[in-house]
Amino acid sequence: MTDGRHPDVELTGYAAEALTPAERARVETHLDACADCRRAVQEHRAVLATLAAEASTPPPIDWGRYQADLRARRERAGRRRWWARPWPAVLAAGVAAAIVLLAVHGLDRRPGELATVEETVLGARLPMLQQYRVVERLDLLEDLDAIRQLDRFGHGS
């Protein structure tokens, strides 16, 4: 403004009464000396005043139906989003974590390792097996058929 240029953006702000007192004072100083900007402000004001005087008037609406529809949408949204509530989310997360853990441990097992069920059976038999002198080779422990045979010997003895 002080360099002789027209303060275009500020002129609109001035017409819209959107300036701070300091900005307003600067614009008014410029307007005192610039007829073009005074005319621009008048035109800006005319545009804004015309629009403001004829504010939007939308087609009439049935507010009772509007509220009823909104209530129905709210209820539909509530039903559809039941899974987003905290307790089902926690439950679902727990189930998912269990599935992932099982899958990872199942896949992670290298060939040759005993399966979980077999380990459990073998673990239950170990105290009894320790009583058998016939068990001299540890690799027999990996053979469930041999263990079953030993069981029979054990019960028979």
Partner: peptide, 17 residues
């Protein structure tokens, strides 16, 4: 916002002119 307002009013002023 002021720049949007300025550009909008300038365009609308052109319609009137």
């Amino acid at each position: 916002v002021r720049v949007h307002l300025h550009r909008a009013v300038t365009t609308l002023r052109g319609v009137v002119r």
